[in-house]
Write a protein that binds this DNA or RNA. Structure first.
Lengths: 265, 265
DNA sequence: ATAATAGTGTCTTTAAGACAATATTAC
DNA sequence: GTAATATTGTCTTAAAGACACTATTAT
């Protein structure tokens, strides 16, 4: 038992200490002699799938890499954690987001983490995937570091036209799947709209995301029943009957409907 | 622009190469000279919250650490990714699970990733959190590497009695929250039962998890309507009327009810 | 027969879904 | 007025929830 107590992969630093006869006696001593860089740690990155709707179709923010590997290929914005500047993972995600768009997103959520031996040619790597929702209105795209170009690209059937670096096509699918699932029982889709919007605009986002027709009266009642939409007092004027403008109450993103939209499932 | 193209934190290895005048010309050349260990990468671990029900109460598997830091403290089973042996994150989670219990779990799901500067005294660290569900029946607990003791511990109000290492109390809460949420619209709770079970046993798990009374007739219909429970033909005999035994169909874990249990929300 | 648990029947309520009808604007 | 979109009304359906009732076993 004792001989296999420390597995090879588990604590290289500890093992090294043991082999050198330097078994630390206290936690303080252990930490003082501990060097995190000697660990066999995977590469760790954060990637952000930023969605918006432009002219009634779903778009995602892509950047063109200007570094190896996958130089000149398009990818989701993302990169390494800044061990000095980033206090936690969310900070990394928000930094990446702001770096490319110049603004904060009204909604940001962690999707999950993908890690494997083969997903990055440099070695074992994992990436913590986020998705963000924002209106494309005030955004001024900036290439920032690591990218030569930034652009919104339309998403169709869970894909963009471009071939993406790494496993980012898979990541995009995962993020979209999460968003589509949540569209069935939350108000998240609204966060791709500017702060003020009409009910029809909001319902149209659901139509785009779920790729199915949605009954306007039903959806209107479903949304209003939550009491998380407040009238701004303003109207959207057009060639036809003006529509009331609404905004979300603060807790709207947390709301969970008791019943899912059934739709085409 | 060019001067701030490569942020300090982003590509130390690349920066080093640039400073040394070794700008690689091709991806192959770049990869050949690439040394992942020179990266400033966070510590990366995988932790698994393994739930079961023993004598009608929710239990979680804990291990007592026999290594620094937090030596002798209880914690969730987990540890470093084996860059050689583990092909992906799920493999690490399954390995940790099997290492302590000797069996595979009928259900394993990634909850999310927590990472920050301060959660580990050794430095910036992130952990990918999983939760697993299993029957405690056939399990033979084994301390395995890194632990001096392994034991099931009852969970009450989202807590165990023991003080846990690192931020594992928080991780336990996160995993439990996910499980409780899913109990409202999935059949996952059943995966803490042995392969064959009665409907009343299954409903009782929901009661334990959701900490509220659940109408037996309602729940029975809700479960049976899915057609994902098949009768085994056997009966559980007791002092009273025998109960039919059921097992899950293969896809039962994926099933999502259109409507949530409302309960005490 | 009684106790105890397994299992069925029935009624109410709520929200989704379908679709008809009305309201308000520009022209 | 018409066209177009916003908004309201009404009916159906399905499942949750509540609770009364029946069924089957051991004693």
């Amino acid at each position: 038992m004792t001989s296999c107590m420390i597995a090879d992969s588990e604590w290289p630093q500890f093992r090294r200490n043991v082999l050198m006869g330097k078994l630390p006696a206290s936690e303080a001593e252990f930490l003082a002699s501990y060097d995190p860089k000697k660990f066999d740690a995977p590469l760790a990155t954060v990637d952000v799938t930023i969605f918006t709707v432009i002219n009634g179709s779903l778009n995602v923010l892509l950047v063109r890499r200007n570094e190896f590997p996958y130089m000149d290929k398009w990818s989701l914005p993302g990169g390494f954690i800044d061990l000095v500047g980033d206090n936690d993972l969310n900070a990394t995600a928000m930094r990446k987001l702001k770096d490319k768009t110049g603004v904060d997103a009204p909604y940001l959520e962690q999707v999950g983490t993908v890690g494997s031996k083969g997903r990055d040619p440099r070695g074992w790597s994992l990436t913590v995937l986020y998705f963000a929702l924002m209106s494309s209105e005030k955004v001024r795209l900036r290439a920032g570091s690591g990218a030569s170009e930034v652009a919104w690209r339309p998403v169709q059937n869970g894909q963009v036209e471009e071939v993406l670096a790494f496993d980012h096509e898979e990541l995009l699918k995962k993020a979209l799947e999460r968003l589509q699932n949540k569209a069935r029982y939350t108000m998240l889709p609204g966060y791709v709209l500017p702060e003020e919007f009409t009910l029809t605009e909001l319902i149209n986002i659901y139509r785009v995301l779920l790729e199915e027709d949605i009954d306007n009266p039903m959806m209107r009642r479903r949304l209003l029943r939550t009491n998380l939409l407040e009238e701004t007092g303003g109207f959207r004027e057009g060639d036809t009957r003006p529509a009331k403008l609404y905004r979300f109450a603060r807790e709207a993103a947390q709301h969970v409907f008791e019943r899912n939209l059934e739709g085409g499932r």
